[in-house]
């Protein structure tokens, strides 16, 4: 499987695998309507909460109109607004496990039409929320099993037959 390096061709600045359009390693850049998960790291009193989404700028949540009180250290899920700088439809993620994966692997973890995500949930009896920025929330269930499956997907995202491999290795009921 040939790799394409930055500068190999016009407009190629990241690593690609031949035949795959999306770059195999990238940095997450927030886009409007993306669902992301992040951590509250600061509060501008009565104005906004600052959210770290592991990108090169933090997002804000406007306090006006927010129906909940958030604390530093809380993990939240939200939608990137049109301005690209604030989060809307914010939901507090209580309990569960927050797990980070490279953002370039998010597509594989969700699967087209979400079927890989449903498979993970089924095989680990869990409930997942996946942020486009590579941060995942495992709400309940067998956390270590869910993480094992996610790690396997990340390690083998570029290898064919992934779904079969997952079924074979994690398919038996616990």
């Amino acid at each position: 499987m040939r790799v394409i390096l930055p500068g190999d061709m016009e407009n190629i600045y990241n690593l690609h695998l031949e035949g795959i359009d999306a770059a195999i390693e990238t940095v997450y850049i927030p886009k409007p309507r993306d669902v992301v998960i992040g951590k509250i790291i600061a509060e501008k009193k009565n104005v906004a909460y600052i959210v770290d989404i592991s990108s090169f700028y933090a997002m804000s949540i406007m306090i006006r109109g927010l129906e909940m009180r958030l604390n530093i250290g809380d993990y939240v899920m939200g939608v990137v607004s049109q301005t690209g700088e604030t989060l809307e439809n914010v939901r507090l993620l209580r309990n569960g496990v927050i797990y980070r994966v490279p953002e370039s692997k998010v597509g594989r973890i969700v699967g087209s039409k979400g079927e890989m995500l449903k498979l993970i949930e089924k095989l680990s009896n869990s409930k997942l929320e996946v942020g486009r920025n590579g941060i995942i929330w495992i709400g309940r269930g067998d956390f270590s099993r869910a993480i094992d499956i996610i790690n396997t997907i990340v390690k083998r995202a570029h290898i064919r037959g992934l779904t079969d491999y997952i079924m074979k290795n994690f398919g038996d009921a616990k």
């Binding site: 309990n95 496990v97 797990y99 980070r100």
Partner: peptide, 13 residues
């Protein structure tokens, strides 16, 4: 990076 609370750890255990 992984993050969870003490309650989550204890309940899972």
């Amino acid at each position: 990076m992984i993050h969870y609370s003490k309650e989550t750890f204890l309940e899972y255990y």
